[in-house]
Amino acid sequence: MLELAIGIILGGCALGAGCAMIAGIGPGIGEGNAVAKACEAIGRQPESKGAVTSTMLMGCAIAETTGLYALVIAILLIFVAPNIFVKILLNAIG
């Protein structure tokens, strides 16, 4: 019975990590849009390449934040959460 409970905990953590990383879609689309617009801008005004590139990198880094929140949660679920949950379970059983 205990093995089954621990197995459910581990499986739930892995599934949760996978679901959390769905958030990677958002930054992907956003950064793709940003880079596309930057390419357009450089094509229109090649002399502004330096300013456009550095601004685009800044914007990409900020757009990436939501994806990284998801990544942090996924990493916590995979590496940290199982230990804590199993400990809680063992404490509850006594």
């Binding site: 880094a61 990436e64 934040t65 990284l68 929140y69 990544l71 942090v72 990493i75």
Partner: peptide, 16 residues
């Protein structure tokens, strides 16, 4: 929070 997560997440995700 977001500054810390951004830097650490990027480096750690590269490692992973």
């Amino acid at each position: 929070l977001s500054m810390a997560f951004r830097h650490y997440g990027n480096v750690l995700s590269g490692t992973v």
